[in-house]
Amino acid sequence: MALTKAAMAEMLFNELGLNKREAKELVELFFEEVRDALAAGEDVKLSGFGNFTLRVKNERPGRNPKTGEEIPISARRVVTFRPGQKLKARVEAYAGSQ
């Protein structure tokens, strides 16, 4: 089961004693803050987890995969996530079920 905003709010309710409405609002606002910063052109650094950085991509030639028609992919700004050392180390240890 994937971790969702609802499960995060539930955790804040159970472990921190925020009421359900506060917990839900805080989770919502947390992601909204990160999104606002990125939309405003700012990188976001969450120590212990990782950094969200913005990259600008130039226009490049593309193709409609259905028709094969050539169409340029316009220049755009995109978000990339770079996991921090601590997160990488914790995840690396996961043996997995593959």
Binding site: V34, V44, K45, R77
Partner: peptide
Amino acid sequence: PSNRTVTKTEL
């Protein structure tokens, strides 16, 4: 993008 970075503390 600007070089400004928002940290966990600022958030």
